[in-house]
Computed example of a mutant assay.
Amino acid sequence: MRIGEVAAKAGVSVRALRYYEEQDLLHSTRNRGGQRQYTADAVERVGLIRRLYSAGLPSSIVREVLSFAEAGGASPELVGLLTAERDRLDRQMTDLRDARDRLHACIAEAHRDGGPERPSGDGSPRDGRN
Score class of each variant (00 low, 15 high):
1 M>R: 04
2 R>H: 15
5 E>K: 02
6 V>D: 00
8 A>S: 06
8 A>D: 01
10 A>Y: 00
10 A>G: 01
10 A>V: 04
11 G>L: 05
12 V>A: 03
13 S>L: 09
13 S>M: 09
17 L>P: 00
18 R>M: 04
19 Y>E: 06
20 Y>F: 06
20 Y>H: 06
22 E>P: 03
24 D>S: 11
28 S>Q: 07
31 N>T: 09
31 N>V: 12
32 R>F: 07
32 R>I: 07
34 G>W: 11
37 Q>H: 04
38 Y>C: 01
39 T>V: 08
39 T>S: 06
40 A>Y: 05
41 D>G: 04
41 D>A: 01
42 A>M: 00
43 V>Q: 00
45 R>W: 04
45 R>H: 06
47 G>E: 03
49 I>W: 02
50 R>W: 11
50 R>E: 08
51 R>C: 09
52 L>T: 02
52 L>K: 01
52 L>N: 00
53 Y>C: 04
54 S>M: 02
54 S>L: 02
54 S>W: 02
55 A>I: 05
55 A>K: 03
56 G>I: 07
57 L>Y: 02
59 S>F: 02
62 V>Q: 06
63 R>T: 05
63 R>Y: 08
63 R>M: 10
65 V>L: 03
66 L>F: 12
68 F>K: 07
71 A>E: 05
71 A>W: 09
72 G>K: 04
74 A>L: 08
76 P>K: 11
79 V>L: 15
80 G>D: 15
81 L>P: 12
81 L>W: 04
81 L>G: 11
84 A>Q: 15
84 A>N: 15
84 A>G: 13
85 E>D: 12
85 E>Q: 13
86 R>F: 15
87 D>N: 13
89 L>W: 13
89 L>P: 07
90 D>C: 15
91 R>L: 06
91 R>A: 11
92 Q>I: 12
92 Q>M: 15
93 M>D: 14
93 M>Q: 12
94 T>I: 12
96 L>V: 14
97 R>C: 10
98 D>E: 11
98 D>F: 10
100 R>M: 13
101 D>C: 09
102 R>S: 05
103 L>S: 09
103 L>N: 11
103 L>H: 07
103 L>Q: 08
103 L>M: 01
103 L>F: 07
103 L>D: 10
104 H>W: 07
105 A>L: 10
106 C>E: 04
106 C>G: 09
107 I>G: 04
107 I>V: 11
112 R>P: 09
114 G>Y: 01
114 G>M: 03
115 G>R: 08
116 P>V: 00
116 P>A: 03
116 P>W: 03
117 E>S: 00
118 R>G: 08
120 S>N: 14
120 S>I: 15
121 G>R: 10
121 G>I: 10
121 G>E: 14
122 D>Y: 15
123 G>Y: 06
126 R>K: 10
127 D>W: 13
129 R>F: 12
129 R>I: 08
130 N>L: 10
130 N>T: 11
